[in-house]
Design a protein around this nucleic acid. Structure first.
Lengths: 181, 181
DNA sequence: GAATTCATGTAACTTGTTACATGATTTA
DNA sequence: TAAATCATGTAACAAGTTACATGAATTC
């Protein structure tokens, strides 16, 4: 349901192709929702079959043609409907934490390396999120000051998540080092 | 893959039934990995077909019989193998954040209520996690002081996640209130 | 007497992932 | 000339969710 609704949400901002939709996902809500290319196309087809979106072909001179999707009246209604429904709870799915709790058989060095590795990945992510705050391409689509502020808060959510993870890792590594000594 | 491995991990701690396995998931790694009952049974069947676990029936007097699963040699090897592999990255899937970014059409009151509602749910979660730190039933299974510490750190991860979310919500609500005024 | 716990399972469905296929254009 | 970008799609598979079915025992 969320994927459907998110597509409707993006198309409400401006009509666009599956290809660009995917990019938009990645570099705006990527920190809290991930999609693959095939999911996007599948859902767009389903959405069109259900009459919530409509498409037209746009000739790309040189480039391949693209299919531009826009919301129908029903689509707009479905989006509004979704917004009014209560939110489903978040469910984390954290492979690293799962491995962590079962990793007591690993030598201290390897465990520490695993945590260090994850920390590195997080730092990089943090940087890409931070870059979004300054380069505000995303915010170009915002239809009001308030909406812009909301997008900004969303990016900050990604930063906060990274920070929280990094803080936990630092704590865990310190605790385990103490233990090993 | 992670689900498989997690089951192997739990069975390595002690042999148990699908039913108890499910509970164990819920109240130990529940803060970063969720499973449904049918997933557990399906995976146990697959695991047994692959020869990684073996089962025996235990008569429950009065209570229904239960199938107790334990690791085979191959199962132990598969677990060790998984532990040595690099971890897959985390991918958040946060329905609330998704709704948030598309919610600019909602009146300020409703948006605020949505955030408040989510905050309430988080506070409750935080409490159940916090309770686990004092009541240490989970840690009974720990086979070493180090392993116990790791489980404790995992619970603290859940607390840290709640705290980070709550902090972000407070910030977002304040920012939007300022905006509305 | 109703709901919850114990305990297993299946079926149908939805969602997410991986890999493949095509083919022109642009950039390194 | 190799890779990346643009742009669409399909097929097969893996993982996750919901709903159903059974049935005794216990707790409210």
């Amino acid at each position: 349901m969320s994927l459907r609704a998110a597509i409707l949400g993006f198309l409400d901002l401006n009509e666009t192709s599956g290809y660009l939709l995917r990019k938009r996902f990645e570099d705006s809500v990527g920190s809290f929702w991930s999609v693959t290319q095939s999911q996007i196309y599948r859902e767009l087809h389903a959405l069109e079959a259900d009459g919530l979106v409509a498409s037209r072909i746009e000739e790309g001179d040189g480039k391949p043609n693209s299919k531009i999707y826009g919301l129908t009246k029903d689509g707009r209604a479905a989006l509004a409907e979704w917004l009014s429904e209560p939110v489903e709870p978040v469910q984390l799915r954290h492979p690293m934490m799962l491995k962590f709790v079962f990793a007591s058989s690993l030598p201290q060095k390897e465990l520490d390396a695993m945590l260090a590795h994850y920390a590195e990945a997080l730092k990089q992510q943090r940087e890409t999120y931070a870059a979004r705050l300054s380069a505000r391409q995303i915010f170009d689509l915002a239809r009001s000051k308030r909406e812009g502020k909301m997008w900004r808060l969303a990016v900050e959510h990604g930063l906060a998540w990274c920070d929280a993870e990094l803080a936990w890792i630092a704590k865990a590594r310190a605790a385990l080092r103490r233990d090993a000594a």
